[in-house]
């Protein structure tokens, strides 16, 4: 076959066989309608049902306050500066605890995934710990460490480290063996292979573990904050919740619940979701919704 024909044939094949560019998600108004509208409508519906239940007066006011009463409580707490204070106390604990959990969970996961003896020894324990509600650690942590910040961080770590380590183990287990083989064929030593092949290939699983680790940090923190009350500890969201219960103030309780939810969802939506989507899309794993 003449050279020129061959080149044209190949270029034609390349053009024909290249996968079509990804369908971009809707833009502008359409995007708004597809992404923002459904959850907004759901929230409005919930408030409408809530208002209707309140109006029917099935429960006394102290059990079910009206949406407006809760909004009023929110504004009052915000006016006193207590919302920012509790939010700051809790989120900075959760973020700090989460970062330490990442620092511990990552090397732990690496060792469990790659060293057979270690996996046999603590692999099952690590998975088991994930199903242990972290609130179960609170009494032990209080007895060991006393009512202070280290007790709270201990509970957060016990909740988050297993998720992060397990996520990394799962990510590493799913790396196709052929990629590691290619790595060694291309001249990668053990460390280089970990750095340039194993870890990047395990990134999606690791990210899923981080996401879950964050959720567990946040939950564990709330559990610890509700139970541990001390002047030294400051008022976090968990304590706000507990105060509402002690004062039989349902508006405060609901406000605290909504704040806890908002932080949990907010961090996921603003941080983990975009990160995960970026990583998955760059690998052509388009299961991630736009």
């Amino acid at each position: 076959m003449p050279e020129v024909d061959h080149r044209a044939l190949e270029a034609g094949l390349d053009a024909l066989d290249t996968p079509a560019a990804e369908q971009r998600g809707p833009r502008g108004l359409r995007r708004f309608a597809a992404v923002v509208l459904p959850p907004a409508v759901a929230v409005v519906l919930i408030i409408v049902v809530w208002q209707a239940l309140w109006a029917s007066a099935l429960w006394p006011e102290w059990k079910l306050p009206s949406p407006l009463a809760v909004a009023g409580e929110f504004v009052r707490l915000a006016g006193e500066g207590r919302i920012t204070e509790t939010l700051w106390t809790s989120t900075h604990r959760a973020v700090l605890g989460f970062l330490v959990a990442v620092a511990i969970g990552t090397p732990l996961g690496l060792v469990v995934a790659r060293v057979r003896v270690v996996r046999a020894a603590i692999g099952p324990l690590l998975s088991g710990l994930q199903s242990l509600p972290s609130v179960a650690w609170v009494p032990a942590a209080v007895l060991w460490l006393g009512l202070n910040d280290s007790m709270i961080y201990a509970v957060v770590l016990l909740g988050a480290v297993p998720s992060i380590a397990n996520g990394l183990v799962a990510g590493i287990d799913q790396v196709p063996p052929l990629l590691l083989r290619v790595g060694s064929v291309l001249g990668a030593g053990r460390l280089q292979s970990a750095r340039h092949v194993l870890l990047p290939a395990a990134l999606p699983g690791y990210l899923a573990g981080l996401k879950q680790g964050w959720a567990f940090s946040w939950r564990s923190l709330m559990a610890a904050e509700i139970i541990a009350r001390s002047p030294d500890l400051g008022i976090g969201l968990g304590q706000l919740l507990e105060q509402g219960r002690l004062l039989t103030d349902m508006s405060t309780v609901i406000t605290a619940i909504l704040l806890i939810l908002a932080v949990g969802v907010g961090v996921d939506l603003l941080f983990f979701r975009p990160l995960e989507r970026r990583v998955l899309r760059s690998r052509g794993l388009t299961g991630a919704p736009a």
Binding site: L178, R181, V182, L186, G187, A188, H196, A201, S282
Partner: peptide, 29 residues
């Protein structure tokens, strides 16, 4: 020096661009 190997599957690193994939063995060296 180091024989080059091509398998039945391309086994490219999915997180690297084509150019970065080709650069990988050079980077390792």
């Amino acid at each position: 020096g180091r024989p080059a190997v091509v398998f039945q599957e391309p086994a490219l690193m999915p997180w690297l661009t084509a150019a970065r994939n080709v650069e990988l063995p050079l980077k390792l060296r």
